[in-house]
Structures are given as C-alpha cells and as structure tokens.
Nucleic acid binder design. Structure first.
Length: 472
RNA sequence: GGUCCUAUCGUCUAGUGGUUAGGACGGCAGGUUCUCAUCCUGUAAACAUCGGUUCGAUUCCGAUUAGGAUCACCA
C-alpha cells in the first residue's frame, strides 16, 4: 500500500506553486499505486498562522484538481488531520522518549540560548545547545512538577553517523556532531515540525515522503526520531526546489508564487499542473502536453531530476494557449463565462466569438482585451481618425448595400471598395478595424462585423462624425 | 562560516564510454495573412574548469569553481 501526503502550514495566504508541484508528485504516486493521498495541516506555529490561510489552501488545492482522500475537510481513518488537534499525542510520544533516555527536559531561557548562540557564532563554531540541562534532569523534573516551570523537550542526538537513503539522491551520510539537540516539544505544548511530522507520518502510515529538498538537512533528525521510537523508515524523496530567474528559491518577494494568482489570470488548472509536472521530470516519450491521467500512468519516482529548475511563466503561458486551442468551443465558452462571471456576459454572444479568438488568446484574461468591443462600443480609438470622415462615409454606403450580412459577403464588398478607391488592403482594413473595434489588434474583421450585425456596424461607422477622437 | 545538495543551448530537458549531442519554450529569418495570432519552413544557441581511469570521455572517479538549501521553542 502506498500512502503519500502533503503537509502545508497555514503561514501564507494561499498555496505556493512549488507546493502544488510537490503535491502533484505525491498525488500521482499515490494514484498510480492505487493508494491514498493525504492532506495534513501543520499549524503548530500559532505565531505565524495567517487568518483564512488554511481554508484558502484547501480550496485552491481542490480548484486545481488535486483531491485528497483524507484531509481535515473530508476526515479519514487517522483523524484529526490538523496538528493543533493532536497535541496530546505529541506530548505522549515526547515524554515516552524522555523515559527511554532519548530526549530530555530543558528549562534554559531564550535569553541564555540567544547569548550562547551569538558567542558560538563569534567563535565560528556550529551553534549548538550545550546540554546544560541534561546534567540536571532530576532537579529539573522536580522543579517542573512542583513549580510548573516553563520547559521544552529536546531530542538527545546520539554520537556517530546518520545514514539514510533518498530515492532520487542515493545514500546520504551526516555526522551527528553537526546536529543540534533539537527541541521537539515547545514550552507552549505544541510540537516542533520535526516531532509532529515523524509522529504523524508514522501514525498515518505514510509510505513515501515526497517533499522539497529544503528538508534534506533536517532529515537526519527525523531518522534519529524514527530510530528512537523503533519505527521503520518511510521512503524519503527530496525533490528540487523551484527557483526565481536569479536562481534563488522561488519567493514571493521576487515572483508571484500564489497558485490563485495564476488561476485568476485565466491559467487553466490542467495547464498549470502540466507545466509543473515538467519541472524536474520529463515525459518518457518527450511529450510536452499530456493529461493528469497520462502523467499518473507514466510518472515514476526514479525519473525525478535532482537539479533545481527555474519557474518560467512564458512557457506556462504558451502551454496554456495550447490547452485553450485544443478544447471544443463550448468548453472554452463555459470557461470564459465562469472567468468573467461578475460581468454577466451574454452567453450566445460569447459562444459566437470563441472561434474568432481561440487561436489568439493565451489566458482567459486575454479574452476581454480582444473582445470587449463586442459588448460595448469603443470609447476611444487607438489612432486619430478625425480626418477619415469621408472615407467612412464611402464605407458606410458600400456596406449599406449588403443585404446578406455574412463575413464572406462583407469581405467581398469591402475588397471591391478598396480596389475602387485604390487604397492598400492593409491600410483600408486597418481604418475600418479601428472604427469598429477601437483597436489596432482585433479578431478577424469580417467575421467580427458579421457577429456585431449590420445595424451596429453602420452605427459605429457614422459615430466618428459625432464624437471627438480619443474620448467618449 | 559548518553541513548537505546540484552542474547539457537564455529557460525546461533528452541522451550515450565512440552520436552531425535530440526535442520544447523563447529569439532570429522567411512563408501564409486585412491587424494580431494560429499554422508551416529554416536558423543561431549547450555538455563549467582541471586532473585521473580508458584505445576513447559530455557520460565513470576526484578536485576546483559556481549556484542552491540549511544551520530557531519557523515550517
């Protein structure tokens, strides 16, 4: 049985795209092996909790299609799935380690620790707890019992080498002398990440821990915890981190990182997943575009790349354009309507315009940029048309004669007029495009005019005579 | 600074002990075209450096360099 999980911490406003990339692999590996994909909320740092962050994260994950088999929302056999609701469990396990002599109480103040750390750093030593409290456990325990002194529980790091295997990086060996006696239970009774993650992954029977490589340096601590408890190790898979163009870890200071940001500009969830799948992994047949189902079929942990890719929004947009182009018109219509649901666009009209712009937009948000003129007459023109009055009068009388208002007929009639007036097609159509759409860039003109209707087009041709340029 | 991870076109990547080192995005140049796109054709562009192993290394090993991550009562 394969069980994977993601363990987001609600310390941000939304899901980071890097987390989606990680979630995707976890999801795919679970589904591929007919296992379960779990979401567990790690909300043990109550000083950093962002109001509404958890709800937003869970909602975005659903929006993007990574549906959990077990989560705080849907529950499951190992509930609760929110660490703040499992405090008694961590306390029990932490105390068990103390009894076993694998952990110890510490009542050192933050001030002492800070002072010690800065002194060590000044001497260019590795900052480490000096184990002052380890020597006085008996007194400390009685002090805690009688006076209720604030205390933490620290993991006692054994001497020697820590070895573990990473599924994509192979064997990793770290000398224990480089590891600090990590606090595992904080003075507020909450566990630190290290205890919480090990206890929960064990209790929830997680088989594969697929997470960002930022966790690689603390994995030895987790290994020590597993060994202290006498538990079997899961398979560790540390995947590379997404980066900014300057190669630093992808961060919100330098790039948009929230998943909703991309979704809200009309990047389709399936395109985002497809793009993210290609970060640190490639399709065995070299395909760029593939569905989530196909990804699940061909994905394998052993093919995961170890170097860190740069997140490139340009290629993401290209890919999104590919998705938009391959969907049926009706499907795009519904996506556009949903995307602009606040604007309450006319459904029939949207449907007619889709074929004109499907090859022209990369994101759903490009739709109105191109098509707004279908819904309201342009308020201004990108080019000064004030000296073209006569020209538009001629176009007007030509088009007035068209009885069968179809793109083809309109086109023929206009071409004839252009010939007659001896105006280059490009110039001729550009002026008409401007007066009809207001813009230099638009969907195909004849087809647009057909959709707009004869009456409206004629109205727009005359409008130039009554309104000032560049204004209403 | 200590520890750990990483290194193929600008970017995402494929690949092999002997290849003209392949593809995609992006770029550039053409074609199609009433604009913009789409589509099509072509083109420039990479094995970080130095040693070693070997008949032969981009590929295996080591060092160097560079980049990254991490060193909290944060995750």
């Amino acid at each position: 049985m394969v069980r994977t999980r993601i363990a987001p911490s609600p310390t941000g406003a939304d899901v980071h795209v890097g987390s989606v990339a990680t979630a995707l692999m976890n999801y795919a590996w679970a589904k591929k092996n007919k296992g379960q994909f779990v979401i567990r909320i790690e909300d043990t740092d109550r000083t950093r909790i962002v109001e509404g962050g958890e709800a937003q994260m869970l909602s975005t994950l659903k929006r993007i299609g990574l549906i959990a088999d077990e989560s705080p929302e849907v529950g499951g056999p190992y509930a609760p799935y929110r660490q703040s609701e499992r405090l008694n469990i961590y306390k029990k396990y932490a105390e068990e380690l103390v009894v076993k002599g694998k952990a110890y109480y510490c009542i050192c103040t933050q001030e002492r620790l800070a002072k010690m750390r800065s002194e060590q750093q000044a001497k260019k030593q590795v900052p480490k707890y000096d184990r002052l409290c380890l020597a006085h456990q008996k007194e400390i325990i009685s002090k805690i019992k009688s006076e209720g002194v604030r205390h933490v529980i620290r993991l006692l790091i054994p001497e020697g080498q820590i070895k573990f295997n990473d599924a994509v990086r192979g064997e990793i060996i770290i000398d224990a002398k480089n590891i600090d006696d990590q606090v595992i239970l904080k003075s507020d009774g909450f566990p630190t990440y290290h205890l919480g993650v090990v206890v929960d992954d064990h209790l929830m029977k997680i088989t594969h821990i697929i997470r960002g490589e930022e966790w690689l340096p603390s994995t030895p601590k987790h290994v020590i915890l597993y060994q202290a408890f006498g538990w079997d190790l899961p398979t560790f898979v540390h995947i590379s981190l997404l980066r900014n163009p300057d190669k630093s870890k992808l961060s919100k200071r330098k790039n948009p990182v929230w998943t909703s940001y991309y979704l809200d500009q009309g990047i389709l969830p399936e395109a985002l997943l497809n793009y993210l799948a290609l970060m640190g992994w490639s399709h065995p047949e070299g395909k760029d575009i593939f569905s989530l189902d196909e990804y699940i079929k061909v994905f394998d942990i052993k093919d995961i790349q170890t170097s860190s890719p740069i997140f490139d929004p340009v290629k993401l947009e290209w890919m999104n354009g590919m998705y938009i182009r391959k969907y049926p018109v009706l499907s795009i219509k519904y996506k556009v309507l949903e995307f602009y649901k606040d604007k309450k666009l006319d459904e029939k009209l949207v449907e007619k315009t889709i074929p004109l712009i499907q090859d022209r937009i990369k994101k759903l948000s490009d739709y109105l940029t191109l098509c707004e003129f279908f819904f309201k007459t342009p308020k201004k023109y990108e080019v000064d048309l004030s000296n073209k009055k006569e020209f538009f009068e001629k176009v007007y009388s030509e088009l007035e004669k068209v009885t069968d208002w179809k793109a083809l007929v309109i086109g023929e009639s206009l071409i004839n007029l252009a010939k007659k007036l001896e105006i280059k097609n490009s110039q001729f159509f550009m002026d008409i495009r401007l007066v009809i759409t207001g813009k230099k860039i638009s969907p195909p003109l004849n087809e647009s005019m057909e959709i707009l209707g004869k009456e409206e087009c004629l109205k727009r041709l005359t409008r130039i005579q009554f309104f000032c340029i560049f204004s209403v």
